[in-house]
Simulated scan of single mutants.
Amino acid sequence: MAKIGEQTWDELYACHFVMDVEGWRITLYNDCDELDYCEQAVSPVGQRWDFSSGDRTDPIALLSTWEHRSLELRLKAL
């Protein structure tokens, strides 16, 4: 997992955060220093999935409380 771009999670505060996970380009929304939702995911071969914050298929909504918090901590460490 690596961030794409210069700014850290804390510097963005309320904005989209783009990262690379094993070739997948994933855009997450940082809402006032809290992981809110997944905006978009693009596979290594270019397939694209777009999610809306109210969509029940948002992968962030499927995380357990522990997984959500663990991911937030990892994002802050990037």
Rank of each mutant, 00 (worst) to 15 (best):
W49S: 11
M1Q: 06
R74T: 06
E6S: 09
P44A: 00
L28A: 12
L28R: 07
T8Q: 04
L62K: 13
S70A: 15
I26V: 14
K3L: 12
I60D: 09
M19E: 06
H16R: 10
E39L: 07
E39Y: 05
F17I: 05
E67D: 14
G5F: 10
E72Q: 15
F51N: 04
R56G: 01
C32N: 15
S70W: 03
W24R: 08
D33Y: 11
H68A: 05
D20V: 01
G54A: 08
D10V: 07
W24C: 00
Q40F: 03
W49D: 08
H68I: 06
C32G: 04
L75W: 10
L35P: 03
D55W: 03
V45N: 03
R48I: 07
P44R: 02
V45G: 03
A41L: 08
P59R: 04
E72K: 09
G46Q: 00
L71H: 07
R56F: 02
A14G: 00
W24E: 01
R74S: 13
Q47R: 11
F17W: 05
F51L: 03
E67W: 02
N30Y: 06
V18E: 13
L63R: 07
S70Y: 08
D10R: 12
D20H: 01
L75D: 05
S43T: 15
I60R: 10
L35Q: 06
H16G: 02
W9G: 09
I60E: 09
Y37M: 04
D20E: 14
T65I: 12
D50S: 07
Y13H: 15
V18M: 09
C15W: 06
A41K: 11
D55V: 00
R25F: 00
S64C: 10
N30M: 07
S70M: 10
L12G: 07
G54S: 11
C15E: 14
A2I: 05
F17Q: 07
D36M: 03
N30E: 04
E11A: 14
D33I: 02
D36H: 14
L62R: 05
A2Y: 01
C15A: 15
A77H: 11
Q47L: 07
W49R: 08
L75Q: 05
I60Q: 11
Q7H: 12
D33G: 05
G23K: 00
L35A: 04
E22F: 01
R48E: 04
T8S: 15
A2E: 11
A61V: 00
W24M: 02
C38T: 11
W49I: 07
C15R: 12
P59E: 03
A61H: 13
W66N: 04
M1N: 04
R74F: 00
D10F: 09
A14Q: 14
S70L: 07
L75G: 08
W49H: 06
T57Q: 08
R74H: 05
D20Y: 00
C15D: 15
V18A: 12
K3G: 09
L78Y: 03
G5C: 08
W66K: 13
Q47G: 01
L75S: 05
T8K: 14
M19F: 03
L35D: 06
